[in-house]
């Protein structure tokens, strides 16, 4: 499968400056595209556009030639957010949060180091790193074909970071999932990605 943005234009308000103008980018299944840019260059916006949270003003986001917004129900392009704290409902227990994922396989939790005792807690009783593992697991449902990672490991220590990236690479290669990995950390991207795109150019 191919996920591509075709000539997209985007700005947040009518009177603000363009964030993207005639911008195109393309990812294939099984490959990992790293996107690097300093803060404020619209990395998160790119993720939101590619996963259908925001709609481009012109141009299209296509999945296998079909407009991404025309997919009903489970979206095959899932995004993992930078701050897991805002990506989970504070009034719902972790077990129900995970249940929203699409047919998650059992061993997923083990692979991500999610402990059983965390399942019956509320999000504010877990740390950011622990929450992020839940968010990653939730996004890895059966129907997920592309995964967008928006600075997902910035709050983690090196050991945990490397553990999570090893898992993600292994998982996405095995299931032939395409990834877009956004970061301002070039060494990380050079390590995990198959190609790197610099937004500054």
């Amino acid at each position: 499968m191919i996920l591509e943005a075709k000539n997209i234009t985007y700005k947040y308000r009518r009177d603000s400056k363009y964030i993207y103008r005639d911008f195109s980018i393309k990812v294939e299944s099984g490959s990992r595209l790293g996107v690097i840019a300093p803060s404020g260059f619209g990395k998160t916006t790119l993720c939101k556009l590619l996963s259908g949270y925001e709609k481009p003003l012109s141009g299209k986001v296509l999945l296998d030639g079909k407009n991404l917004l025309s997919y009903k129900g489970y979206c095959p392009v899932q995004m993992i957010w930078q701050q897991p704290e805002i990506a989970v409902n504070p009034r719902i227990k972790m077990r129900s949060i995970l249940a929203e994922g699409d047919n998650l396989r059992e061993s997923l939790l083990e692979d991500l180091g999610i402990k059983d005792e965390w399942m019956d807690r509320y999000p504010q009783e877990l740390s950011g790193g622990e929450l992020q593992r839940f968010c990653i697991a939730r996004a890895l449902g059966e129907k997920t074909k592309f995964l967008l990672a928006d600075e997902i490991t910035t709050m983690l220590d090196m050991v945990t970071q490397s553990g999570i990236w090893h898992f993600l690479i292994e998982e996405t290669v095995r299931r032939n999932i395409g990834m877009v990995i956004v970061s301002h950390n070039r060494p990380l991207l050079e390590h995990v990605c198959t190609e790197i795109y610099n937004l500054c150019q």
Binding site: Y74, Q78, M79, A87, I92
Partner: peptide, 26 residues
């Protein structure tokens, strides 16, 4: 406008499910 509500939508959950599961507790 909360991200977790939007995420739930992208995970294929319907509006009724979101209203009861996510909004009612709030």
């Amino acid at each position: 406008q909360q991200p977790y509500i939007k995420i739930s939508g992208k995970l294929g959950k319907g509006k009724l499910y979101i209203a009861f599961q996510h909004m009612l507790p709030h």
